[in-house]
């Protein structure tokens, strides 16, 4: 675990073609400073996994606008302020994989937990289950879903200690704890890095074992 001196240091070494998990639900929990650093770092041809496909012109939307993203995997791209994604999609300049929100969360959880695949009832009988294996279990139909893992996770949390233990704030928690388990390199931006021992162990949400780099912004 490294406490980085800048967001740029936290995203060093990101390769072209990487799968990047980006936390946040809209802007709550969105690691804007890390995404801005990734734009400066220059990696391109990225696949981004995030609940939305960018809001306004900052954070993920800025990464999309910079032309660095080949594909977005998300549950809800279309919003009142998703004009960057909407324009790219309508121009055929970006791929989209729509995943039901709970399936997105569970695929990330499975990716971090070493699960090979799982059967979910969500999406059965819809366009989003087309071409997927289904199975009847105890009289109910389920669809087989595979895990998601990233090369890099960019996460917005509230506070970290020097071991990488994390706490979150209110609904900004959302995908952070899941994505922190599911990437080769996990970079976290926080409002403050506190001394080891200053976080209540009972309140830690993401244990430091999952975290590689933190930066206070």
């Amino acid at each position: 675990m490294i406490v980085c001196s800048s967001p740029d240091e936290a995203v060093e070494g990101t390769a072209d073609g990487s799968v990047v998990l980006v936390s946040g639900f809209g802007m709550a929990g969105m690691p804007v400073d890390l995404v801005d650093a990734l734009i400066r770092q220059g990696a391109t041809d990225l696949t981004v996994v995030s609940n939305n496909a960018g809001n306004g012109d900052t954070g993920l939307a800025a990464l999309l606008a910079a032309g660095r993203v080949r594909k977005v995997v998300c549950s809800f791209p279309r919003q009142s302020d998703s004009w960057v994604f909407d324009g790219l999609f309508r121009a055929g300049q970006i791929e989209l994989e729509v995943v039901p929100q709970g399936t997105l969360a569970e695929r990330l959880r499975a990716g971090g937990a070493g699960i090979g695949a799982f059967y979910s009832p969500t999406g059965v009988g819809t366009l989003l289950a087309e071409g997927k294996e289904t199975r009847e279990i105890n009289g109910r139909e389920y669809v087989l879903e595979y895990p998601i893992r990233g090369d890099l996770a960019l996460i917005g949390a509230h506070r970290a200690d020097r071991m990488g233990n994390l706490v979150y704030r209110k609904t900004a928690r959302n995908f952070g704890p899941l994505m922190a388990t599911a990437a080769e390199t996990v970079a976290v931006q926080v409002a403050a890095v506190v001394d080891t021992g200053d976080l209540d162990p009972e309140a830690v949400v993401t244990p430091g074992i999952y975290v590689d780099r933190v930066v206070a912004v």
Binding site: S75, P77, R78, L96, V98, Q101, G102, T103, T122, L128
Partner: peptide
């Protein structure tokens, strides 16, 4: 149309 499902199916 840009498909967006969110949590509706779940």
């Amino acid at each position: 149309a840009i498909p967006a499902v969110g949590g509706a199916m779940d």
